[in-house]
Computed example of a mutant assay.
Amino acid sequence: MHSTSTPAAGDLAWDGSPKHRCPPRFLRVAPDSPTRLLRIAQQGRCTACGNRIEWYERTGGHNPVPLHPHELPTAAVPPHQRWHINSGLAHPAGDGSPWCRVRHRALCPATPAPPGNSLLDSLRRSLALNTRRLHDTGRFTPPPRPDPPPTNPPTPDARPVVQLLYLRYLAPGPLEHIPCVAQTRNRHRCPHPILAPDALPGTWTLAPLHPDHNPGHLPLPELWLALYDLTHLPYSEQLRWRAQRCTTHATTPDAADIARTSWEPFNPHTHHQHIQHHLPGPPPPTHSGSR
């Protein structure tokens, strides 16, 4: 009679080794554990796809790394994606054996796929099917998608530099949206902008970034500043811009101000994010409909 502890002949390979031998699970003491109990790799599930992962401590005191729970043939895994376990620690390299471990991120169906690899692509498809199965049975809920970026991101020239009374100011916003600060008869703020179509306009020009330094004809755009120049306008018109009043309230000095002016003295060091080295382009053409 054969011993009951001896595996059957069908469970042995040609060299006598067990066919279905489970790989050893290394035990170690967790560095953050209050006890001295030995532990194995902590199992969990990926929060992005819901598939099983195993957390291993890494060398050098780095954060734990999630690995795929099964070993893969080393020859089918790129060298930079091979991991091996030694004494319960994960090492980002192969150990010369025909089997290795792979980081879960290389197989996670919720992350961008790396360059083509037949084995990794097959495992990724299998994990994607398992994710769908978990989602259909209610055992996994994918995380919410992040909000899409705004369709109209703020442009860097939203606060242009304006030169009036031979001083430079940073505008509170686009020129066509700078509001009047005067108070109306209904005790509300005036809704009209100070850039009126019937008023004298300023001109966009390139000026030296530092007034005391003239770069001459040097073709260096970072030495020049695009600003809205009002110095050629009459003195009264420049005072109207400085007082931040529309053309209607500029002639009614008795109207009180309901808000403070929003001009900021321009400083190239603190307002560098608003500096434009090129003149703004022409506005897009407007197509009028057929009458």
Rank of each mutant, 00 (worst) to 15 (best):
H213I: 11
A75N: 10
D11K: 01
R45M: 03
N130P: 00
L107C: 04
W14T: 03
A243D: 01
I258F: 06
L239H: 11
E222P: 09
H210P: 06
L175I: 15
G60M: 04
V65A: 10
R139T: 03
A255N: 14
S97W: 00
R245D: 04
L165K: 10
G60S: 01
L127I: 05
R187A: 14
K19D: 03
D147S: 12
D157F: 06
S262Y: 07
G16Y: 00
W14D: 05
G289W: 10
L209T: 10
P7S: 02
L27I: 05
D32L: 10
T286M: 02
A182Y: 02
T155G: 15
L209C: 07
W55D: 15
S288T: 13
H20N: 11
L164I: 02
A171G: 06
R185S: 12
Y56W: 04
R240H: 03
E71R: 05
A199V: 10
Q244D: 04
L218D: 14
H104D: 12
G16A: 01
S122D: 09
L218G: 09
A93D: 14
P7K: 00
G138V: 00
P284I: 01
P24M: 01
Q276N: 08
A128L: 03
L72N: 02
R291A: 09
K19G: 03
H213V: 12
H287P: 12
I53F: 00
D32R: 11
H188C: 09
H188S: 11
P265V: 14
I275S: 02
A76D: 09
V162N: 05
L220H: 14
R185N: 11
N267L: 03
H20T: 08
R189G: 07
R291Q: 08
P146L: 13
P109V: 02
R159L: 10
D15H: 09
A259C: 15
A171N: 04
Q238N: 10
C190E: 02
N51G: 09
H272Q: 15
A243E: 04
R260A: 15
A226C: 02
P146R: 13
L175Y: 12
T261S: 12
T247H: 13
T270W: 08
P92C: 03
H272I: 14
T4P: 00
E57T: 01
A256N: 08
P221D: 10
R189E: 02
A171R: 06
S97G: 06
H232E: 05
P268V: 09
H62K: 15
P174G: 08
E54H: 12
P112F: 00
P24G: 01
G10E: 04
D198M: 07
T155M: 15
P31V: 05
P201H: 10
R145Q: 11
H269A: 11
Y235W: 06
